[in-house]
Design a protein around this nucleic acid. Structure first.
Length: 363
DNA sequence: TCTGGGGTCCTAGGACCC
DNA sequence: TCTGGGGTCCTAGGACCC
């Protein structure tokens, strides 16, 4: 979008990713934890239904990782320090990091999450620039980060993994296949276990095989958009412009996993009311009308269903609550419920960033 | 290993219209 | 009567990311 800013040099994409971010923030305020296996998740109680948000490298050595049930993690690392998630602390640290990235003249910054961002910059020495960024972030926040350098967003993102921890790695069209070609497709950003399994059924197991595939051959399996997108991903190609247009939320949702499955309809209704109140708080802060509602229900043990409805634009909390309760009337009576979720979709402003690239989860 | 919480986007199929 | 061919909107579900 804007490649004319800053000093001379070639445009590069940097992907900056904080190392074990959440665990590192916890160590900053409790230095005595340095070097110990730290697991952050839920309310910090390993007897509850919750999962791991982040584990320190010391805990990862025992096989603990993000998304693992807290109970299982605690069993694997008996002497782990288990801490509750503290969103505010991570958000504050994140904002300081992003500020530091933006403060460099000519840099465009696209935030992907608490602990990572793309930085667009023009320079003849991207490695030197990356080291400057690392030093600046370390000085300002005492946090270490790794930096991937690429000629596309995808290559920069994938490159970061080779730089961890606290390193720098460059991936371009010139070395993409040398580095990635022999690796399984699952290592690509946007290819998970399902898609890699479906690719394998087509005889495509490695990145090189995906890169060499004809996009048209993937359409019957993946559809007109995702088929060609996966082929492009295999080559590491795609967008190369960092888009700093502020992100606009499409909607807000809240969900709760109950520590004990709910069977009483009155308890269910209370839970829906509470979810609605929390969702409406977030929506009200946006100042945009609600145009749709979706209720998610997980019946024990794991059967999840969703029910959604478009609604006429409204700001009225009572109306929205009434529609949410309407949806909840579709819940099967007497069947134990493990999770309830409510999502409100909001009207989008005309100038919001469009999804010009089919990706999920942030850009 | 018995699975959070907050997001995004894509796809398929049905309804409906001309 | 043995049954067109789009186009659009909506909903449910799937997949992935941090």
């Amino acid at each position: 979008m804007d490649s004319s800013r800053g000093a001379g040099g070639i445009p590069w994409v940097l992907h900056v990713d904080l190392d074990q971010f959440i665990a590192a923030v916890e160590v900053l305020r409790r230095p005595e934890l340095a070097g110990k296996p730290i697991i952050v998740g839920g309310r910090g109680d390993p007897t509850e239904r919750a999962v791991v948000s982040t584990a320190s490298y010391e805990a990862r050595a025992y096989g603990v990782g993000s998304g693992m049930p807290l109970r299982v993690a605690a069993r694997k690392v008996p002497d782990a320090v288990i801490l509750p998630v503290d969103h505010e602390a991570y958000l504050a640290a994140s904002e300081t990091v992003m500020d530091t990235l933006r403060s460099r003249p000519g840099a465009t910054v696209q935030v992907l999450g608490w602990d990572e961002a793309f930085v667009g910059v023009q320079t003849d020495d991207p490695e030197a620039y990356a080291r400057l960024v690392q030093a600046a972030v370390l000085e300002r926040t005492r946090l270490h980060c790794s930096v991937g350098i690429g000629d596309t967003l995808v290559r920069a993102k994938v490159a970061t993994g080779f730089g961890k921890p606290a390193g720098v790695f460059r991936l371009t069209a010139a070395n993409w296949l040398d580095v990635m070609g022999g690796r399984p497709t699952k290592e690509l950003w946007g290819v998970g276990p399902r898609v890699s399994g479906r690719l394998a059924k087509l005889g495509i197991n490695t990145v090189a095989e995906l890169a060499a595939s004809d996009p048209r051959d993937l359409v019957p399996e993946f559809g007109p958009k995702m088929g060609p997108w996966y082929a492009q991903l295999g080559r590491g190609d795609g967008a190369s412009v960092v888009d700093e247009t502020p992100w606009v939320a499409r909607g807000h949702s809240r969900e709760t996993t109950f520590q004990h499955d709910l069977s009483d309809p009155l308890e269910v209704e209370d839970a829906v009311r509470e979810l609605a109140a929390r969702v409406l708080e977030d929506v009200a802060a946006e100042g945009r009308p609600v145009v749709g509602l979706t209720l998610k229900v997980r019946y024990a043990p794991f059967l999840t269903t969703t029910q959604g409805r478009k609604i006429p634009e409204t700001f009225d909390p009572n109306e929205i609550l009434a529609k949410a309760l309407d949806l909840a009337a579709g819940i099967e009576a007497g069947r134990p419920i493990r999770l309830l979720g409510l999502r409100a979709e909001m009207a989008m402003p005309d100038d919001a960033r469009k999804g010009h690239t089919p990706t999920r989860g942030g850009w």
